[in-house]
Amino acid sequence: MSLKISGLTKKFGEQIALDGINITISNNEIIGLLGPNGAGKSTLMKSITGVLKIDEGEILLDDKNITENDIESKKKIGFLPENNPLYNEMFVKEYLQFVANLHHIRKERVEEVIGLVGITPEKSKKILQLSKGYKQRVGLAQAILHEPDLLILDEPTNGLDPNQIVEIRNVIKEIGKEKTVILSTHIMQEVEALCSRVILIHQGKILQDSPISEFKGKFGSLEEAFQSYTG
């Protein structure tokens, strides 16, 4: 899997959300996407997935422009947005089977993913009956169901208890051995536990794109480095 972003710019009226973003990803790795609220992280992720129209620049997935090859590109991408939209009136397994049918995936894969994200005891419940933590798991399940080459996760452990956080981190770590994962989070411990590389975005620009050890540099912690870079 290769992802190349060149000169990506996105505006909302007079506000510049992304300002000439350049990123190249060529290896299977877990990348931490960091930045303060309003930095442009969600806009970047939605641009990569094709949810938002690009104003300037281009995004190439496996050397193909995602705008010109939108259906083919989306087949290779899994996305868990921050608000985790789900069909609350559907049963868990019913919903995941619905998603599987859209992707023309074998039925056995649904049970595999249910077990992988740890929702087997909840699979016969309606989604509206689930806790926030289990809803996050269902969202993660739909994102990985079609075995995407690129997985984009926006605050994936939001609302989970400490045990659930560890379990979901372990799932992400396993996925990252074979796939590329872009992970947006405000939890620095999560970045240290999972990521080999950090992309720091602030005011629509990339301030730092480096291995996590280099990002941390002379600072005592990732929190200190983050505060120093973003002011």
Rank of each mutant, 00 (worst) to 15 (best):
87 Y>D: 07
87 Y>G: 06
88 N>F: 15
88 N>R: 13
89 E>F: 00
91 F>G: 07
91 F>A: 07
92 V>N: 01
92 V>Y: 03
92 V>C: 06
92 V>S: 01
93 K>W: 09
93 K>L: 11
94 E>I: 04
95 Y>A: 00
95 Y>K: 02
96 L>A: 00
96 L>H: 03
97 Q>K: 13
97 Q>C: 13
98 F>S: 00
98 F>V: 01
99 V>S: 07
99 V>Q: 08
100 A>V: 11
101 N>I: 10
103 H>Y: 15
103 H>N: 12
104 H>S: 10
105 I>T: 07
106 R>E: 14
107 K>I: 11
107 K>F: 14
107 K>G: 10
107 K>M: 11
107 K>V: 12
108 E>V: 05
108 E>T: 06
109 R>V: 09
110 V>G: 00
110 V>I: 08
111 E>K: 10
112 E>K: 11
113 V>A: 04
115 G>N: 08
117 V>Q: 01
118 G>N: 06
119 I>Q: 02
119 I>V: 11
120 T>F: 15
122 E>D: 14
122 E>M: 11
123 K>F: 14
123 K>Q: 13
126 K>W: 02
127 I>L: 08
128 L>H: 13
129 Q>E: 15
131 S>Y: 13
131 S>V: 11
131 S>D: 14
133 G>C: 09
135 K>P: 04
135 K>V: 04
136 Q>W: 01
136 Q>F: 05
136 Q>N: 05
136 Q>R: 06
137 R>C: 10
137 R>D: 09
139 G>T: 07
139 G>N: 06
141 A>W: 00
141 A>T: 00
143 A>P: 08
143 A>V: 07
143 A>Y: 07
143 A>R: 01
144 I>M: 07
144 I>R: 03
144 I>W: 04
145 L>C: 03
146 H>F: 15
147 E>G: 11
148 P>K: 02
149 D>C: 04
150 L>K: 01
151 L>A: 07
154 D>V: 02
154 D>R: 02
156 P>H: 09
156 P>M: 11
158 N>K: 15
158 N>W: 15
158 N>R: 14
159 G>C: 07
160 L>E: 06
161 D>M: 14
161 D>K: 09
163 N>W: 12
163 N>G: 10
164 Q>I: 08
165 I>G: 04
167 E>F: 11
167 E>Q: 14
168 I>Q: 04
168 I>A: 07
169 R>T: 08
169 R>F: 15
171 V>Q: 09
172 I>L: 13
173 K>H: 13
174 E>N: 14
175 I>P: 00
175 I>M: 03
175 I>N: 03
176 G>K: 03
176 G>C: 07
176 G>Y: 03
177 K>E: 11
177 K>R: 15
178 E>S: 10
180 T>C: 10
185 T>V: 10
187 I>L: 15
187 I>Y: 12
189 Q>G: 15
189 Q>T: 12
190 E>L: 13
193 A>W: 14
193 A>K: 13
193 A>R: 12
194 L>E: 06
195 C>N: 03
195 C>M: 08
195 C>G: 05
195 C>L: 05
196 S>K: 15
196 S>P: 10
197 R>H: 09
198 V>G: 09
198 V>D: 08
200 L>G: 02
201 I>Q: 05
201 I>R: 05
